[in-house]
């Protein structure tokens, strides 16, 4: 299954190795749609500027700007992010190796300029918030289709385009613990195999996250979501919101692999 974050185009397509004899408890049509979503070309060697607006329950805003670089390495994804704003955290940077192998924890390095130290971060929990936003790490990394059951619920329209509504349910408790979601609804725009909306039910706190890709652009022939709204709700009440925007999205920037190293990260932009 393509994660919402991947739809934005930051990560590369990952090939799924599903044994052909795998018996499906879910419906085939839904799985076929999700497979197509997963197979869609989402580009490589990408650079962009990410602007994250965090809105808390008091309607107070915080803005964070990051410069993002990403590259595919085989089936894995390398990603480097530098903080541009706010000033106190400028040059703080994150480097991630997102491995395709589900048994292998992702690698993450963090450089704190105030401490002049790089730390490798070991954490297998992906349900924690990404940079204080309403997205979590599992939203950023790839999920394996065989970890889920898919059910086609109905057809709908989103902003005038035909779409499928598919329910996805994790097959094991481990997946629920890792992603923090007990189930999701994904809405796939039919003509471009793109997840334009998703609803995720959180394991703890009785909250639901609404993700809405409000702006889609075709850049170098690749569909990219350049603005996403995420709202975390408890019942009827919104408790937090995130607006995620991508500027200057460029593909095929010929990024070298040695850009994605600790040494490069410590040097700053």
């Amino acid at each position: 299954m393509k994660t919402v974050f991947r739809l934005i185009g930051l990560t590369l397509m990952i090939t799924f190795l599903i044994p052909p004899s795998f018996s499906m408890a879910d419906d085939e049509k839904a799985r076929e749609i999700m497979q197509k979503v997963d197979d869609r070309n989402d580009g490589d060697n990408q650079t962009s500027e990410m602007i994250m607006t965090l809105i808390d329950k008091n309607d107070e805003e915080r803005i964070r700007k990051l410069s993002v670089f990403s590259k595919d390495k085989g089936e894995d994804t390398l990603r480097l992010m530098f903080f541009l704003h706010p000033a106190d955290v400028k040059d703080t940077s994150f480097l991630t190796y997102d491995y395709d192998d589900p048994d292998k924890d992702d690698d993450q390095w963090l450089y704190l300029p105030a401490l002049k130290k790089t730390k490798r971060i070991a954490s297998s929990d992906k349900s924690d918030s990404f940079m204080g936003s309403d997205l979590n790490y599992s939203d950023m990394t790839s999920r394996n289709l065989e970890d889920y059951d898919f059910y086609l619920k109905k057809e709908t329209q989103v902003r005038g385009k035909d779409a499928w509504v598919i329910e996805s349910k994790p097959r094991s408790k481990e997946i629920i613990d890792e992603t923090g979601y007990t189930k999701s609804l994904v809405i796939v725009q039919k003509d471009i195999d793109f997840v334009v909306r998703a609803v995720n039910w959180e394991k703890t706190g009785d909250s639901v996250k609404y993700m809405d890709m409000v702006k889609l652009e075709q850049i170098d022939g690749i569909w990219v979501g350049t603005e996403m709204h995420v709202a975390k709700k408890k019942g009827n009440q919104t408790v937090h919101k995130t607006i995620l925007k991508f500027n200057n999205v460029k593909f095929n920037q010929g990024l070298e692999e040695d850009l994605f190293t600790v040494r490069r990260m410590e040097k700053g932009l």
């Binding site: 965090l54 808390d56 008091n58 107070e60 915080r62 903080f83 706010p86 106190d88 955290v89 703080t92 994150f94 963090l110 704190l112 300029p113 105030a114 401490l115 971060i121 954490s123 924690d128 918030s129 990404f130 940079m131 204080g132 937090h240």
Partner: peptide, 25 residues
């Protein structure tokens, strides 16, 4: 800056606990 960066690190790695102690601002 170090306080700010350590907060950021925390928000990023065990972050959900932070909201029990401070507001998001």
């Amino acid at each position: 800056p170090l306080v700010a960066q350590e907060f950021l690190l925390f928000e990023n790695s065990g972050s959900d606990d932070l909201e029990d102690f401070v507001d998001s601002q």
